[in-house]
Amino acid sequence: MMDERQRNLVLARQFMDADDRNDSVAIANMYAEDGIHIVTGTTAISGVYTKQQMLAAAGGIFAPFPDGLRMKVHSMIADGDRVAVEVESHGRHVSGEVYNQHYFWMLRFRDGEIVESKEYLDTELVTQVLCRQQLTAPAQPFTRQAAD
Rank of each mutant, 00 (worst) to 15 (best):
M1I: 05
M2E: 14
E4G: 05
Q6G: 05
Q6E: 15
R7E: 14
L9E: 12
L9V: 07
V10I: 02
R13P: 05
R13E: 14
Q14H: 12
F15Y: 05
D17V: 06
A18S: 14
D20G: 03
N22H: 05
D23E: 04
S24F: 02
V25R: 07
V25A: 12
V25P: 11
A28H: 12
N29H: 04
Y31L: 14
A32P: 02
A32F: 02
D34F: 02
G35I: 13
I36C: 13
H37W: 03
V39G: 07
V39S: 03
T40V: 14
G41H: 05
T42P: 12
T43M: 01
A44D: 09
I45K: 03
S46P: 06
G47L: 01
V48A: 01
Y49S: 00
Y49N: 00
Y49R: 11
T50V: 08
K51W: 01
Q52I: 04
Q53R: 11
M54E: 14
A57Q: 10
A58F: 08
A58D: 00
F62V: 11
F62K: 09
A63R: 04
P64W: 05
F65V: 02
G68W: 01
G68V: 02
L69R: 06
L69M: 10
L69W: 11
V73F: 00
H74D: 15
M76C: 07
I77M: 13
I77A: 11
A78C: 06
A78M: 06
D79E: 13
D79L: 06
G80F: 07
D81Q: 03
R82T: 08
V83C: 10
E86V: 04
E86Y: 03
G91Y: 07
R92K: 13
E97L: 15
E97T: 07
Y99R: 00
Y99G: 03
N100V: 15
H102R: 14
M106I: 13
L107F: 02
F109H: 11
F109D: 09
I114E: 14
I114D: 09
V115G: 13
V115Q: 00
E116K: 00
E116M: 01
E116G: 02
K118C: 07
Y120R: 12
L121P: 05
L121D: 04
D122W: 03
D122G: 08
D122H: 07
T123R: 05
T123L: 00
V126G: 10
Q128L: 13
Q128V: 00
Q128S: 14
V129K: 10
L130E: 04
R132M: 02
L135D: 12
L135V: 09
P138S: 07
P138L: 12
A139D: 13
A139I: 04
P141R: 12
P141Q: 01
P141N: 03
F142L: 12
D148S: 10
D148C: 13
